[in-house]
Amino acid sequence: MAVNPFQHADSASRVSGPPSGGDYLADSIFRIIALSCAALIVVLILYILWEIGGLALPAMAQHGLSFVSGTTWNVGTQEFGVLPEIWGTLYSSFLALILGGTFGVGIAIFLTQDFIHARLAAVFRTIVELLAAIPSVVYGLWGIYVVIPMLRPVADWLHSELGFIPIFGTELSGPGMAPAALVLAIMILPTVAAITVDAFRRIPYKVKEAAYGMGTTRWEAILKVMLPTASSGILAALVLGFGRALGETMALAMLIGNSNQINLSLFAPANTLASLLASSFPEAGQIEVQALMYAAVVLLLITLIVNIVGLGIQQYTVRKFEGKA
């Protein structure tokens, strides 16, 4: 009688066979767990909105829109207005964006357009990435003991010589908008540089070669071909960098001076939504906590909108170059 080649497959030590009922069960349980974890991420952001919104509700009902247009924050009289904080948040982020954006895009050009050997460029990129790894509080400490003393003579000179221009209108007494915006610019520089480098990398090498082939100088190629082609990616980098700056907390809480005023001067102290939260929350009573939750909602909405716009532009860029619908 011939040996049945399939006989051992039925024995206990089979090496192959159809999945057993237990395998099917494990598979579907695993699938459900993974699915609920993915769903958890979506639920998380809704839950964040729900919780913060829920606690802010009494303050919202009481103050309404005057919260956004009011300029005083007085726990004693229960007057809460965050217009100076909104102004400070936008102004500091805007200043940081001008400076950090220029440097970020400049460094991205430096890294991708063959200015230095590829290996050196890799080293330099590590340096920029390390800049992003330094904690915010350390930047704050550095700002207090390095940037502010360094800025003081410059600020004094600008104020005494050009004090008639509003942006130099006050003296730098210590913490203020200028040191805060400068440190903020350094903090968003790696974000802007990384996304811009990515945008340049997506441009096919042919495009640059064609430009050089037409006899352009390096900068004609960069300004007339590379930058326009990468423009949407660079825009995404700037918007996402702006979003990063809006939510930055600790360095600003340490450097901006936490003063509730609207001033165009670069040297005047100011405040931001995030640093208002950081400085007032730990000692806040119940009424103030509700007002702070309202401020958190304002910050959340501003950053969500900016981030979603930035991500939208970034996705558009990716599709443009990868040709996906």
Partner: peptide, 28 residues
């Protein structure tokens, strides 16, 4: 659709102000 939404939310959360994570945990 769930995967697309979750991916988008995760990307949005990478730019989430870190202090709001504190505010959220405070509330919860």
């Amino acid at each position: 659709p769930l995967a697309g939404t979750a991916r988008f939310v995760a990307k949005t959360l990478t730019g989430f102000p870190s202090i709001l994570a504190g505010v959220f945990t405070y509330a919860v």
